[in-house]
Amino acid sequence: MKLPWKRTLRILPVILMAVGLGAAPAAARPATSDHTARTQAGWNDFSCKPSAAHPRPVVLVHGTFGNSVDNWLGLAPYLVQRGYCVYSLDYGQLPGVPFFHGLGPIEDSARQLEVYVDRVLEATGAAETDIVGHSQGGMMPRQYLKFHGGAAKVHTLVGLAPDNHGTTMGGLTELVRQFPGAEDAVDEHTPGLADQMAGSDFLRRLNEGGDTVPGVRYTVIATRYDQVVTPYTSQFLAGPDVRNVLLQDLCPADVSEHLAIGLADRIAFHEAANALDPDRATPTTCASALS
């Protein structure tokens, strides 16, 4: 898509922010969203039946500019190998933008998640699912839980570097607001980004009256080296049944930033697995990188 120069200059801050908010590990190559490849690995296999040990299917929710494959090339096989039925969806698609999703209005994305969870529950026969999300994917499900009946269908929500209270992008979101027309350009062309800016109307509604809903367990796993969701403490939730985890408290040597915590960090993966099955949890340490 070609943009006129004046319009390109006007939304330059938006483009810079978009690069930072990306969660695609392979932005330089097309997503390998082939259904057969995933089902052969036991991932997105709708014939999978949850075991007695892991009775709830796990739905993985990608981040901004992510997709149902690239965001989960690390975590999906990790959970499949541990006996989970694992599924992932694409959401927040924009017309004419392939592979890079999570850009549409988050309200609409939450409804896509609602439909997908229903599909997973119907296929597996489970009464509830667990959700693990990265970045926007750790926050967006809260819209589903709070406003679209998800609390009755979700047992646990695990967020890897979720932007639960928005991001300042190290002050970049405030900079965007200083450029005439730039904030309007974000709203018009990438509403999913606008919704994630600290102080947005969407986040005000989402967090009004409390961060959590009854009946759901929440775990947030954050890294102090996050340069996308800033400050990193804005990721944490308050309320009953909440566990906020700083990765460096588990392994001081872990230097994962925003992308790595969701894409490749097996220490974060180990802690996410603990959150999904606390009865069988084992301590997460630096050695968990080898587990």
Results as ranks from 00 to 15, higher is better:
V186I: 05
K146G: 13
D254H: 09
E188K: 04
E271N: 10
L250W: 04
P214M: 14
S200Y: 03
T156D: 11
A185H: 06
V242R: 10
L160G: 05
A222C: 04
L246D: 09
H148A: 06
A275P: 06
C251Y: 04
H155A: 12
G199S: 13
A238N: 15
E257F: 09
Y144S: 00
Y218D: 01
R142K: 14
H155R: 12
R266Y: 15
I261F: 07
V228W: 00
P191T: 00
G262R: 10
Y225G: 02
H155L: 06
T190A: 15
A151F: 08
H258V: 05
Q196M: 13
Y225V: 00
A194S: 15
H258K: 00
T190Q: 08
K153N: 06
E174A: 13
D201K: 12
G199P: 11
P180I: 12
L172R: 12
H165M: 04
V186P: 02
P252N: 15
N274R: 14
Y225R: 11
E271A: 12
P162C: 00
H148P: 03
N164V: 00
D249A: 14
E174K: 13
F147M: 03
T173V: 13
T212V: 14
T219Q: 04
T173H: 00
G262D: 09
C251S: 09
L193A: 14
G150A: 05
A185Y: 05
L203H: 01
T219P: 02
T223I: 06
T173M: 02
Q235K: 01
H165N: 09
V242W: 05
D249P: 06
Q143V: 12
A273Q: 15
E208R: 11
V186E: 03
L259N: 02
D265V: 05
Q235F: 01
D277E: 05
L206Y: 05
